[in-house]
Amino acid sequence: MNTIKGLLLKDLYVFRNFKNNFIFSIIMFIALITMGSLRNDIFTIGSILFLIFFGMNSISSFSYDENADSDKYLLSLPITRKDIVLAKYLFVFLNSFISILVGILTSFIITILVRGAVQNLGDSLRICFLAFTSVSFLMCSNVPCIYKWGVEKGRMQSVIIPALLVFVLGLFASLLLFLFPQIYLNFDLAYIFKISPYICLVLNILFYVISYSISYKIFLKKSI
């Protein structure tokens, strides 16, 4: 457990380097959300903005590790490959999770202060959770690419592979609808949206478990 804590700290120290940028960006976002809230309820947009801007920064920790060839050194310490991959996934998850959480809290407070209440809070939170799941999908398809090809070389693959996965899933869904059109007729979108947090929860677990397994297998075979 201490090893994982140490590895998470290592990545957190890298973030400390961007402390001023983060503070400046947060102030900018707060100002933007406040100004936006004067005209409309932008609780959802504000929350998602935080997620998109801060939630995917964890990729930079891979860059720093790659530049310092840190994995080689870490593996010479009493640290296993499993520890390294697990800690990275925890870091990626925590980074996205904290980003959306801070986004939701900030936007909520601003909206309450400016507009007195958030419209359709439940639906807004559902949309935030959907956005969080989309970011999880993107991150979980990116991380194995980084383990396979590295941050620099894997840049192209990190774009192509998620796009390809979306395309294949879309094709599969279209084919399903073509073969079984009754599915479309019985499709209750409102109900799906209502239970979307549960679907998102399952999808998030699936994305992380599958992605972690792939990355671990890649890293296990990798000569450092």
Partner: peptide
């Protein structure tokens, strides 16, 4: 593994 100490010429923690 805690009984082993290692120095690698080209690899260490991030310079930050």
């Amino acid at each position: 593994r805690e009984e082993i100490g290692v120095v690698l010429d080209d690899s260490f923690f991030s310079p930050i």
